[in-house]
Structures are given as C-alpha cells and as structure tokens.
Design a protein around this nucleic acid. Structure first.
Lengths: 228, 228
DNA sequence: TTTTTGTATTCTGCATGCAAACTTGTCAGG
DNA sequence: CCTGACAAGTTTGCATGCAGAATACAAAAA
C-alpha cells in the first residue's frame, strides 16, 4: 500500500535557475526597466531575484552574447547602448535571415502553419483596430517568429531569436505614427498573401521592404528620443 | 630620459579567465579531442585547466549557446552530436549570411581589404600545392572570415563566427577528395575575382554554390565516418 | 579654486563548501 | 536469467568566502 500517494511532484525542477534569471533580466532590459547604460549591480540584482551571485553572473554573461549587456572587466556589466548603427546592422542581418526563412517556409511549411499565422494576423488586426500598440507588437512579433519557425530550420530560428532581443528593445520605445502603423499593417497583409500563395520571390521582397520600413521607423523613434 | 623605459605591462590581465577557457574548450571540441557525446566532467576539466569550477561552468554555458555542447540538467554537459541535419541547417543560415556579406563587401570594402584577401588566397594556394590540408583549411577559414569582415557589419561578423564553430568541427574530420579540393580552390578563385570586380550578384551566386558544395563535402565525410 | 594624492569602501573574479539529484552496483524476488 | 529496488558514491547546482581591482571621497598642495 502507500500506493495512495498523490504522485506528488515527480518533476523536481527541470529548469536551472540561471535560465530563469536570463529571462527575467532580458525582460527588464527589453522593457526598459533597466535603461541603456545602467549598471548591473550584482548585489542589487541578487536581492531582487532572491538568488545568489553565481547563477546571476552566468545569466549576465549569456546576455552579453546576445548583445544586451556589455561586460567591463573588473567593473561589472552595463546595459548596452542602443546605437542606431548597431541596430541597423542587426536589422540587416535579420533581413537576410527572414529572407531565407521566407523562401524555406514557402517550400516546407504546412497548411496548418499558414493558417496559424493567418489567425495571429487577424488577432493583430483586432489590436490595431483598438489602437492597442502593446498587444499589436506582441502579435506582430509572434507572426514573424512563426514565419521563421515555419522554415523548419532550428538553427535559423535560434539565430533569429538571439538577434531579435535587441530589436524588441528599440521597438519597445518606438511610438509608431498612425501612418507608419497603418503602413506596417498593410505590409503584413501583403506578406500573408504572398506566404499563403507560396510565392517565395515576392515574399522575400516584401519581407525586405517591411524590414527596411521597420528600420526607418525604429531609427526615427530613436532619433526623436535622442533629441529629447 | 627615463623615457627609455619599456612601458612594462600596464595591462594587468584584461582577459577574464572564463574567456580563456572558452577558447581552449572550443579548440578541444573543434579538433575532436573531445569527441561528440563525450561528457564534460567538471572536475577533470578543472584539473586540466588548473582553474576552479566557477569559470569553467560559465564557459560551458557559453559554449552551449554556440551549440557546441548540450546541457543536461543535473547531469552535466556533453559535446553535442554532429547531426547532418543540423549541419545542413547551419550551412543554410551561413549561406544567407555570406550572401549578405558579399553584397555589403562589394559596396563597402576598401581596396586594401580586397588585397588582404588576395594575399590570403595565394597563401592558401601554396598550401594546396603542397597538399597541406590543415594549413589550407586555416587560410580558407581566414578568407571567409575576412570577407564577412569586409562587409563592415559587426553583428553579421559575430553571428557568422558563432555559427562557424560547429562547421569547423565537421570540417576538421572531413578528408577532401582530390577532386573536391581542386574544385573548392577553383571556386575560391572565382569568388576572389568576383569580389575584386565588385560584382555583387555574381559573388553572391558563387558563395551560395561554394557553400552548397561544402555542404555536400561535409555531409559526405560525415556519412563515410558514420558508415565506418 | 583646481588638481593631486592617499585612503576607505565597494565590487568583481575566482575558489570552495554543502545539499540535492543522478548514477552505478549489488541483491532479493520472480 | 531477468526485473526491480535499495544503498553507496559521484556529480551537479547554488551559496558563500576571500583577495584583488576599481571607484569614491576627502584632505592637502599648487
């Protein structure tokens, strides 16, 4: 007997602490709670997360490879600056990746994947209609990620996500103008159509153009912010 | 006077230990000294490197983001397997990156950068003539890296390097046939010509083809090895 | 007032300690 | 002979301790 036991928690704790910390720290940085240039004081963050320095330090070093923070030997880490030039470089790389993703997705993705993206697209339209920029961004991100995912290339997806963090950060403080926003939605409309039609060439071109206007938008917001 | 002093060692130790360890570990893995599937026993590696576990663990986690090792919770890390599929995915992504690099390099690179690559090319030819595969690979790598570097996009270079580690590993055990080797050299010849002529479209096409044959070569070697 | 220098404090980088989780080997039962 | 369980021994994950480096601050000199 004793077989009555509730089978409690056979899963001990699969997720290492430092992984948890990475996500929390990344969120703080992306959302701007930790502003560019801010020092990452180990003691403070340890207290904040309720952990010790070892996993925190591991997390910080990993975030450094994503380019979210900068490591200064013997002086700790700071949230990396959002340099327009670096952002442009990142978006150029992401453009190449999205282009590849579009091509692969047209060839390899299932109808279900297209429909999933279509569904996300409509949810995004709903948030656009309501003027909810935050929710819009969230679904926008999801769509791009799903598209890259549909390419069926795990390395591609991983690389894309890695680069994306920095862009999300810039995006977070970008306040789209009504025109830009409408334009972006229109572009998404076309992108979805091209994907559904499996028109790889057109999809690649649209994705490139979409990214170019995204770059302009982000740089504009960054410039306006620097001016203020 | 006094100005004669050798300006001795104002640099204390700029490079953190874990960074050193990463490089050494990466070399071990790339060169196959740590075979795929091998466990990374912390104690053993600590003794080997003469350091303690903290910096070693940091290094291992960073290598995990490069895909060189795999982290198994509570069971340590193992050298990741060289799956042909994953390699193909990696090379596809690198193809997109090289293509972008070629385009940018044609536009932005200086004549000096072209000449530097030309010089490396001739050194590579020398090693090819002598049949020194190891040295050939080394210069081959350098050329590709310099080309990406010539694009003048730091993010692109970083991303490329990150992915490259895994390919180098496969490459290390690939024993090119004479034909493949000659063909690769011929392809490099064309690539250099296109780059020198700033013919972006042609360069992109050549790079794509070069990578495709590299993929075939690596997969062939991997398959042959699996058969043995 | 400005610059410099000495000192105290804070913080990072690395080493080590401890508890929990996993692995291995042995043994009882079928 | 095979299956399952238990115990000993490793190994990892995280916390903490300690030395050295960097910073901040204050006092003294220019």
């Amino acid at each position: 007997m004793g077989s009555v036991e509730t089978l409690a928690a056979p899963q001990i704790r699969r997720r290492p602490l430092h992984a948890e910390v990475i996500d929390r720290l990344r969120d703080l940085i992306v959302q701007g709670a930790l502003a560019p240039g801010a020092r990452l004081n180990e003691r403070v963050l340890c207290a904040r997360f309720g952990i010790s320095r070892t996993p925190l330090r591991e997390a910080i070093k990993l975030l450094a490879t994503e380019g979210l923070v900068e490591l200064l030997p013997h002086r700790g880490a700071i949230v990396s600056a959002l340099q327009p030039e670096r952002l442009a470089e990142t978006l150029a790389v992401m453009g190449a990746l999205e282009s590849l993703a579009g091509e692969l997705a047209c060839r390899h993705s299932s109808e279900a994947q297209v429909n999933e993206i279509r569904a996300l697209h409509y949810e995004m339209l709903a948030h656009h209609a309501r003027g909810d920029l935050g929710a819009y961004f969230k679904y926008n991100q999801q769509i791009h990620l799903k598209l890259v995912e549909a390419a069926g290339n795990a390395v591609l997806l991983h690389t894309y996500r890695q680069l994306n963090a920095n862009v999300r950060r810039a995006r977070y403080m970008a306040n789209l103008s009504k025109e830009r926003w409408d334009q972006a939605v229109a572009e998404h409309e076309e992108i979805l159509a091209a994907f559904a039609a499996r028109d790889a060439e057109r999809l690649k071109r649209l994705l490139r153009e979409h990214l170019a206007s995204k770059l302009a938008s982000v740089l504009g917001a960054l410039g306006a912010r620097a001016a203020a």
